[in-house]
Design a protein around this nucleic acid. Structure first.
Lengths: 192, 192
DNA sequence: GTCTATAGAAAGATAGAC
DNA sequence: GTCTATCTTTCTATAGAC
C-alpha cells in the first residue's frame, strides 16, 4: 500500500484548491484538466482517480468556497455588526478583489458562467450564495427579520464586482465600486 | 453581380441577430460558428465573408444591443420619469427576463463571460453599459447631477438577473428579484 | 456570396505500465 | 495513486467549386 489514504485526501485537496482558483478566475471552459493538474503539481491521468469528470470537479470546487464563509465569520470577533458589514463592503467592492490581488469570490466571478452549466454546479453556487446572504442578514438586524434587504445587497455586491471585471474603463469601474459601496452603507443605516 | 450589396448587408444583419441571441443565452464558448450560421439560415463557410473570426462577431453582437436602448427610450413617450423607471425595474427584474421569455440583456447574461475575453468584447460591453447607465441617470434626477446612485442601481439590476439565472431554487430567485425591485424603487424615492 | 470538404489544433476521457 | 500514450470528439479556420 504505497499510497496512504491521507495522501490521497491531500492530493484531492490540492486539486480542489487549484480548481477553485483557476475556475473562478478563468471560467469553466477556459480551464483544461491539463492546466488544473499542472497547477496542482500532478499530471492529467491522475485526475480521474479523484473526480468523475470535469463537470464534477467544477461543482465540488464551488462548494469548497463555503469554508471561506467560516473565515469571514471568524474575523468578526471584536467588531460590531455595523463595523463588520462596512469592512465586508470595503473588501468585497474593492479594486483588489476585482483585480484578483485578494481571494476571489466565485459568486461574483462565476455568476453567468454557472448559469450555463448543469444542476450540480448551480446547486453548489446556490449553497454558497445562501451562506453569504445569511451571513449578511444575520449581521443586518436583530428584530426586523421579515426584511429582505440582504438579497438586494448581495445582488449589488455580486453585480458590482462582476461589472468591475467586465468593464474596460478604469474610471467607470471606480464609479461603479464607489457607488455600490456608498449605497450598501446607506441601505445599512436606513434599514435599522 | 449575382449578390447585391443590400443582400450582403441583410445576411450580415441576420447573422448578427443570431449571434446576439445565442451568445447572450449560452455564452461565448457554448456557441459554435456552425450553430450560429444554422440559426441564421446559412452555412459555416459563409461566415468568413462577413466577419474576421469568432472573437470579432462576439464584440459586434454585443455592440448591436445598443439599438435596444433606443427602443427603451421610445417607450417613454407619455410617462413620467418615475413611471418609466418603475416600469423598467419591473420588466428587467422579472422572471420573464431571467427565463428568456423576453429579449435578454447581454449586460446581465454575459457579465462574467465578457470578463474572460479580449479588449474588443469588453469595450463593446462597456459601451452598452454606459448607455444603460446614462439612460437611467437621465431619468433619475434633474438637479442632483453629482449623484452616482445610477451605478449602484445598474449593478443591482445586472447582479439580480445574473443571480436569477445562476441560482437553482425558485424560491430564492423570487426573493432576490423581489428585493432588488423594492430596493431599486426605494433608492428612487430617496434620491429625489 | 455561399456552399461542401477538409486541414489542423485543442481538449475530455480511457488504457496500461509502474 | 500517478504516470505516459492514445483514442475520439469538437470546433476554428481555410480551400476551392459554383
Amino acid at each position: 500500500m504505497p499510497y496512504s489514504s491521507e495522501h490521497k485526501q491531500k492530493s484531492r485537496d490540492k486539486i480542489l484548491d487549484s480548481a477553485l482558483k483557476l475556475f473562478t478566475h478563468h471560467g469553466y471552459d477556459n480551464v483544461s484538466i491539463d492546466q488544473l493538474m499542472e497547477h496542482a503539481g500532478l499530471t492529467r491521468g491522475a485526475f480521474y482517480a479523484h473526480f468523475k469528470n470535469k463537470s464534477d470537479i467544477y461543482a465540488e470546487a464551488i462548494l469548497a468556497a463555503l469554508k471561506h464563509g467560516e473565515t469571514l465569520l471568524a474575523q468578526a470577533d471584536g467588531t460590531s455588526n455595523q463595523q463588520w458589514l462596512e469592512e465586508l463592503f470595503l473588501t468585497y467592492l474593492s479594486h483588489e478583489h476585482v483585480n484578483r490581488q485578494a481571494p476571489s469570490c466565485p459568486l461574483a466571478f462565476l455568476a453567468t458562467d454557472v448559469a450555463n452549466r448543469e444542476a450540480p454546479a448551480r446547486k453548489a453556487y446556490t449553497a454558497v450564495y445562501k451562506k453569504l446572504n445569511q451571513l449578511i442578514k444575520s449581521k443586518l438586524m436583530k428584530d426586523k427579520l421579515e426584511d429582505n434587504t440582504s438579497f438586494a445587497i448581495t445582488a449589488m455586491m455580486i453585480g458590482g464586482v462582476a461589472l468591475g471585471r467586465a468593464l474596460n474603463e478604469t474610471e467607470t469601474v471606480d464609479q461603479v465600486l464607489d457607488s455600490c459601496r456608498q449605497t450598501a452603507m446607506r441601505l445599512l443605516v436606513e434599514s435599522e
